[in-house]
């Protein structure tokens, strides 16, 4: 399956005028790839990721999943697609604060419509990501590295075809960041496609290819 953006443009209306976040961006991500997206702050990287993930419809252009335009689908179908095929990992983890580690992961699985053998799957991923001892802890009781591992577990538990990661190591120290990147690398090796935004050159080197965004456009000079 290919995720493809064709001439997508996104403009945000602000008090002081319009800001063009994406300007006729086209790119293609083949299944199995590990793509890094780099660029300065405010260049449009996160907007690109949200648009590719079906969370932010472009003003112009199309995002294709195979040969279907995901923004031609209704909201429900797009949500189901996100739930089933896309795993998001965020810089700020975005865990539900009042749920335990186990429940946070369980919610990810429940919303994927793949709620079969949930208990075994969650137990396995908790072991794999070294979180079994913290399964009843709330996010506030975890270190930042553990929180990001929980967020990864939540994304991976449903076995998505694509992982869209927005600065997954942005809030982590280098050692912890390396641990998280190793998990993502293993997941990619297992066949999952990864699209990852990063500021960090060292992190970007995990990717097979890198796309640079500057002022909402792809910089082909990379």
């Amino acid at each position: 399956m290919v995720l493809k953006a064709e001439n997508i443009t996104k403009t945000f209306r602000r008090r002081h005028g319009a800001v063009v976040a994406l300007d006729k961006v086209s790119l293609e991500i083949q299944e199995g790839e590990f793509v890094g997206v780099v660029g300065p702050s405010g260049s449009g990287k996160s907007t690109l990721l949200a648009t590719l993930g079906g969370m932010n419809s472009p003003d112009e252009g199309v995002v294709l999943w195979g040969n279907q335009s995901i923004y031609d689908w209704n909201v429900k179908k797009r949500a189901q697609w996100r739930g089933a095929d896309i795993g998001f990992v965020f810089q700020v983890f975005n865990l539900i604060p009042y749920l335990s580690v186990y429940e946070n992961i369980s919610v990810g699985l429940a919303l994927s419509d793949k709620d079969t053998k949930a208990r075994e799957s969650i137990a396995r991923i908790l072991d794999e990501l070294d979180l079994a001892g913290q399964k009843d802890h709330t996010p506030a009781e975890l270190s930042v590295g553990q929180q990001q591992r929980v967020a990864l577990a939540r994304a991976l538990i449903k076995k998505p075809r694509f992982i869209l990661a927005d600065e997954p190591t942005g809030n982590l120290d280098p050692d912890t960041g390396r641990g998280v990147m190793n998990i993502i690398k293993l997941q990619h090796a297992a066949g999952t496609t990864v699209v990852m935004i990063t500021h960090d050159r060292a992190v970007a080197e995990y990717a097979q290819r890198t796309i640079k965004i500057v002022d909402g456009r792809i910089d082909n000079t990379v």
């Binding site: 993930g53 969370m55 429900k76 949500a79 975005n94 539900i96 419509d113």
Partner: peptide, 9 residues
Amino acid sequence: IFAALGAPA
């Protein structure tokens, strides 16, 4: 977060 994880409206 729920919506990003796939929760329909």
